[in-house]
């Protein structure tokens, strides 16, 4: 068995804009290679519009790439058809940010959580209820709540239901797309612990998408920093936070507010300017228009993501 569970190769996703015949497109994901190892939690961090959610969806075929391939367990997902394609989907699931928007308000919890069993295994009636009650217990909810509707639950409970639905069919790989961003701190900790427990108990592999560097620090083994559709740096979380090599990663880490008032005595490195447009990204290195260390080469040539000793950085003049 190979070490890699999920591999994205040359992934690109363009969303055309401006109507028929227009050549303009939002370059949401623009040439990404990414390997997620079996059993690890890989985090994807970056700011709104950097393409992290789109990349997550491409990896589980919730969106199909404009270019590139996704290998799952060594198999090219785009080549699978019919029943084998459906079977492969059991193995990859997603937990969404807003647990309210992702649960049908007119369905009982029994039906929301029973659907995967019905669709994939034809399980109905009493057996379905038993499976649902077991999965509810797994995520720390009382099985008696299965006759209720989503609006009768708090935000944290709804997210437990969202996690239960993702785990119903025992997937191997789960994309968690900002799973705790809508939750209060005290509830957030409960859900993060649940995700960590489930990972251990079920041997899951996570792609954890988040803008919260504190959350990522606790849950992830490795992290990829995205900027405008590209991965600009990757490595272990401790290394990337401790000694970022890409200037953008450095600004991102520096910007995260610390719950420590003494942090104000260290002058903050604040990134200037605005995010460039993903429709018409800057030439060369996409960060060069905002980078205080940019030199002429940066506007001309696009830096490749070069890896060494488990770290990778796409910068002509990486920080040391």
């Amino acid at each position: 068995m190979s070490d890699a569970l999920v591999e994205g190769i040359g992934l690109r996703k363009l969303f055309p804009i401006g109507g028929k015949g227009s050549a303009r497109a939002v370059r949401a994901v623009d040439g990404v290679d990414l390997t997620i190892r079996r059993g690890e939690t890989m985090a994807l961090v970056g700011e709104s519009g950097c393409g992290k959610s789109t990349l997550g969806r491409l990896l589980i075929r919730l969106a199909s790439p404009t270019e590139g391939r996704v290998l799952f367990d060594g198999e090219d997902l785009s080549l699978l058809k019919g029943s084998s394609a459906r079977a492969s989907k059991r193995n990859m699931q997603i937990v969404f940010q807003d647990p309210y928007a992702s649960l049908d308000p007119r369905m009982k919890i029994l039906d929301i959580l029973g659907e995967p069993f019905e669709t994939h295994e034809g399980t109905r009636g009493k057996e379905k209820a038993e499976r649902v009650s077991r999965i509810l217990e797994t995520v720390g909810l009382d099985p008696s709540c299965m006759q209720r509707y989503p609006h009768m639950f708090s935000g944290g409970q709804r997210q437990r239901i969202g996690i239960a639905r993702a785990l119903a069919l025992d997937p191997k790989f789960v994309v968690c797309d900002e799973p705790v961003s809508a939750l209060d701190v005290s509830i957030q900790a409960q859900i993060l612990n649940l995700l960590m427990d489930l990972r251990e108990r079920k041997g899951l592999t996570y792609l954890f998408i988040s803008h919260d560097l504190g959350v990522v620090r606790r849950i992830a083994d490795r992290v990829c920093v995205m900027f405008l559709g590209k991965i600009v740096e990757s490595g272990s979380v401790a290394e990337v936070y401790g000694s970022p090599r890409h200037p953008y990663s450095m600004f991102l880490v520096a910007a995260a507010p610390l719950p420590d008032p003494r942090a104000r005595f260290t002058p903050k490195k604040v990134l200037k300017g605005e995010m460039p447009s993903p429709t018409n990204p800057p030439s060369g290195c996409r960060f060069h228009t905002r980078c205080p260390y940019a030199r002429p080469l940066c506007a001309e040539a696009e830096p490749k993501l070069a890896s060494a000793e488990g770290r990778a950085v796409a910068c002509h003049f990486p920080l040391s």
């Binding site: 939690t41 701190v185 993060l192 251990e200 504190g214 620090r217 849950i219 083994d221 936070y241 610390l258």
Partner: peptide, 11 residues
Amino acid sequence: LPRPDDRSPPG
């Protein structure tokens, strides 16, 4: 509160 400057091992 999960902190970015946390030093505990992942997980």
